[in-house]
Design a protein around this nucleic acid. Structure first.
Lengths: 135, 135
DNA sequence: TATTATCCTATCATTTTACTAGGGTTTTCA
DNA sequence: TGAAAACCCTAGTAAAATGATAGGATAATA
């Protein structure tokens, strides 16, 4: 299941992309429009800022804004930051690889075989989508 | 993340497929070979039996066995039984559809748009794989 | 009838998730 | 200059899911 964190993060990014070129957008405004708990959204926007997706401005008239063009924001990176590994098992993860404790041989493991395909198909989707594609 | 339940279930099915044609296989044997907690595996095999994948025999010489040919066991059904919905959000689920509380309009929802593609790509993989393909 | 092995329910510890609390800090603007 | 606006940051917490265990009931076999 997609976590709410990721879901809300994607919605916030979309909202900001639609408001692009204008003034910074306040957390409260996004939270209200997208029906998200404001405090929770605050923490999500914070991680998006720390990971280079958003800029922010403090004080009155402040808020958040995209620091890249929507077409430069790839879903692979968004998903990895918000949701974590794209692979469903660590032993097929490109960026978070880990060997299974139990499994002695990956090559003969049926789970490995299947999840490799699932990972590749998900990656293809994420690679083919930027924020601009979701507007 | 793939749950251990699904992972172990897949491994058990694979094990049984490789032992096909022979006598029923005992839980203990599968648990040992695949490094799975026996009691946990017991409950998994039980749900696989209840969902029509396995047959069982009690008493001495008993155990579990496949009741279909490996090539008749599709990953879509296995995944749905063990892991639940294939979709990452209920609003794009074919078999477990649910409307989102927050989202007023699915057609304009960026999350919906993206997750629809992810679901389709995962489905394609699962549809193209039977248990026989994983051996 | 003793042994083997599945069947079944309940419980439990751990982890993750989704969220809340409660301030601190910076900027703006009257 | 000072009050209000808005982001910054850490910590905590309730609920749910997960992974596993306990303990016996039932059925088949020899």
């Amino acid at each position: 299941m997609l976590s709410k964190k990721t879901k809300y993060g994607l919605k916030a990014l979309t909202y900001l992309a639609r408001a692009e070129g204008k003034e910074p957008v306040q957390i409260a405004e996004i939270a209200k429009h997208e029906n998200i708990s404001q405090k929770f959204l605050e923490s999500i926007l914070l991680t998006l800022r720390r990971n280079g997706f958003l800029g922010s401005k403090k004080g009155k008239g402040g808020g958040y804004y995209l620091i890249k063009e929507p077409k430069e924001i790839h879903m692979t990176t968004v998903m990895r930051v918000l949701e974590g590994p794209i692979a469903m098992v660590p032993c097929v993860s490109l960026n978070f690889y880990e060997k299974c404790d139990d499994c002695p041989d990956e090559d003969s493991c049926s789970v490995h075989k299947l999840m490799l395909q699932v990972r590749d198909s998900a990656l293809e989707v994420y690679r083919n989508n930027t924020l601009a594609d979701l507007l």
